[in-house]
Write a protein that binds this DNA or RNA. Structure first.
Lengths: 170, 170
DNA sequence: TACAAATGATTCGTGTACGAATGAATATAT
DNA sequence: ATATATTCATTCGTACACGAATCATTTGTA
C-alpha cells in the first residue's frame, strides 16, 4: 500500500497483462533463437535457413521475394540467408530469362537431401513436450498462437504464408 | 491424394502441428521486431532498450549480468544495449567499489523521466486488440504463452525474471 | 603467501533482421 | 520513341543476439 508509485502512468491490470505477455514472448523468442543456434552447430543450418530451404523444397523454384514472403522475412534479410545456403551448395540462384530483374532460387540435389531429413527447428523438444500435454491444451496453444499472430501482423502488411492455412476452425 | 510425397519422413499430424506452431511463432517474433523498430524511430528507444531501462528503473542499480538475466538476454548482448542507453544519457556505468569487476548500471534523472512515460513495447496495439477479445480468450492466451515459454526455456538455464511471477494460477 | 580457479564485463566473429538507398530492368505515360 | 515510374534484388548502416575468447579482479586452496 506504500509502494504504489512504481507504476503510475498505467492502470494496474493493463500493465500486468501486457507486461506478462511481453515477458512470455521475449522468453519464447529467445528460446527459439537459442535453439536455432544450437541446430546451426549440430546440423550446419540455422532455423531461418532450414525454414527457407524446406519452403523452396516444397514449393519449387521461387523468386527471392516469394521465399521471403512465405517465411515471413524481408527481402533484404532473405538475401543473406540465400547467400549462406548458396555457399553450402543447397540452392542456386539463376537469373530469370523473361524478366531479368528476378532471381529464381532453385534447390540442388544436395539441398533436397538435406531438406528431406533436416529436422524442423525446435521440432524434437517442442513436439515431445507438446505430446505430453492433453490434446485439448495442444489445440488451445495452437489457437492462441494463431490468434496472437493475426492480432500482431494485422498492424502490418499481410501476405499469405506457407503456414497460414485456414483449416483450423475448431 | 496424389501429392503425398511432399512430406514422407514425418507423420502427418505431427508435422502439421509443429509446422503451424513454428509458423505462428515466426510471425509473432517478426511482428515484435517490426514494432520494436517502429518504436525506435518514434521514441528513440528499441524494445530491448525500453525493457532494460524499465527494469533498471524499477529494481534500482543492478550489475550488467543482473539486468541481462532479468530481461532474458545474454551478458554479451546486454553490453551493447547498455552502451546505447549510456550514450543517450539514460543510464551510467559505475565501477563497484567493493568488487571492481562489477559494473553497476544506474539510471539517470533523464532516464527516469523516459522510463516513466515510455510505452511498453507493443503495449498500445496489443492491449487494444486484446481488450476487444472476450476475457476468457485473454486468459487463455496468457496461459498458453506462459505454458509455451516454460516448455521452451526448460531446455536451457532458468533464472527468474521480472515477469516470471507465480500469481497466475487460474 | 602464492598460485590456481572462478567470476564479471568486454571484445570478437557470425548470423539474423530491418528500412533506406542503389542500380538494373521493365512497364507506363506522354 | 522517350521520359518517367515501378519493380526486383542487392548493398549499406544499425541493432539485436549468441558463444567463445580475453582481461582484470576476486576467491579458494595448497
Amino acid at each position: 500500500m506504500k509502494e504504489k508509485k512504481i507504476i503510475e502512468t498505467r492502470s494496474k491490470q493493463e500493465e500486468d497483462l501486457g507486461f506478462k505477455i511481453l515477458g512470455y514472448l521475449r522468453r519464447i523468442t529467445r528460446a527459439i533463437n537459442l535453439n536455432s543456434k544450437r541446430l546451426a552447430t549440430e546440423n550446419n543450418l540455422t532455423s531461418p535457413q532450414t525454414f527457407s530451404l524446406i519452403t523452396i523444397y516444397h514449393m519449387g523454384p521461387l523468386t527471392l521475394a516469394e521465399v521471403a514472403s512465405k517465411v515471413h522475412l524481408s527481402p533484404s534479410t532473405m538475401v543473406g540467408i540465400i547467400d549462406r545456403l548458396e555457399v553450402k551448395n543447397l540452392v542456386i540462384r539463376e537469373r530469370s530469362k523473361d524478366d531479368k530483374r528476378q532471381v529464381r532460387i532453385r534447390i540442388t540435389e544436395e539441398g533436397k537431401k538435406i531438406a528431406k531429413k533436416s529436422p524442423l527447428p525446435l521440432q524434437e523438444e517442442l513436439l515431445e513436450s507438446l505430446s505430453k500435454l492433453p490434446e485439448i491444451q495442444q489445440k488451445n496453444l495452437s489457437k492462441a498462437l494463431k490468434l496472437l499472430a493475426s492480432i500482431l501482423d494485422t498492424n502490418h502488411s499481410s501476405d499469405k504464408s506457407l503456414s497460414a492455412d485456414e483449416s483450423c476452425e475448431d
